[in-house]
Design a protein around this nucleic acid. Structure first.
Lengths: 180, 180
DNA sequence: GTCTATACTAAGATAGAC
DNA sequence: GTCTATCTTAGTATAGAC
């Protein structure tokens, strides 16, 4: 296996998938390189053959996590899903629990503010992609921005609250605002 | 000074103020007990005469930070400020920079999700207070929830972005939605 | 109540064998 | 390319002097 030309690329990809999952669920500081590598079936030392630092991994993992989350979300919906179907799937208890794929925009929001420029750039890029998915034509940009905040912000806040009743109120309010 | 009956209470308060400021700006993991105590003009060892653990301090600091942020925000506005004046002051570059008092709801959103129940309870309590400030009568609750998300979520996302132009677009969109 | 000194633990990063 | 072993740093928490 060691002499396969694609082996390194595959391993790198596996590390990235593990990192995307763990970082999104638990944040930068609560996940060690050890955790990521163990989750990928490897050991600490092998990490630096693929990435220069934990920060570099984090930046790439954000993008990977976003792609995975998008696929997962859309896969659970009909082919031509309406706006409100997408919004409801995003602002759902399933998503909030975070046991399948999770959106890094909502799960890592305040985890980004003070990190490397590279990390903030990755987040910004993903956010721009999110906006484009919502509303490709730029005339409705203002509405798209509000919708994005209701979705991402609503989920981020919901995950901090400890009261399920309040969370479901919150989701309903955001769904109503984001679907119109 | 050591025999003043109010001395301990005053020191505790000073630690709490330092913690509120540092935690809100930098999050739980990026602030050490050492940092908090040094900022308060004391040393590490003295901490445990006032709090049992870092988590306990964090929970209390969130409430303290919220009160301070509210005072600071309102102090900069006229006595009978309109809704949109409050919203604009909240969603401002001044607030985003975070060099004066900052709202823990927006600055610590995703920092809360996986911490002690006590911490999550503190955050939830502050969020409820925020809602009540926005709209004391519960009939307009749904609108108040959306407004809260546009303010808190808008600020949280803005702090993660690295593009000032995008941030100002974002602020405008949220201000328009939250003021009506 | 506050200080200095000190476990104890965890984590990022590197070195060298295979 | 992956492993084990190690260096280094940092942070929570505690012990004991004053």
């Amino acid at each position: 296996m060691a002499w396969s030309p694609t082996h390194k690329e595959q391993t790198r990809e596996k590390i990235l998938q593990s990192a995307a999952r763990l970082f999104t669920q638990q944040g930068f500081d609560n996940v060690g390189i050890n955790d990521v590598m163990a989750h990928a079936g490897l050991t600490r030392g092998a990490f630096y053959a693929h990435f220069h630092s934990k920060s570099e991994l984090y930046a790439e993992a954000i993008v990977t996590a976003a792609l995975t989350a998008q696929s997962t979300l859309l896969a659970a919906l009909p082919e031509r899903a309406t706006r409100s179907q997408v919004v409801n799937a995003y602002l759902s208890d399933t998503h909030r629990r975070g046991d399948s794929a999770s959106c890094p925009l909502a799960f890592l929001t305040t985890d980004i503010s003070q990190r490397d420029p590279v990390i903030r750039a990755a987040y910004t890029k993903v956010f721009r992609g999110f906006l484009n998915q919502l509303e490709p034509n730029s005339e409705a940009r203002e509405k798209a921005l509000r919708t994005a905040v209701l979705m991402i912000g609503g989920m981020a806040i919901a995950r901090a609250l400890d009261d399920d009743g309040l969370v479901s109120e919150l989701f309903s309010a955001c769904q109503a605002g984001a679907s119109r």
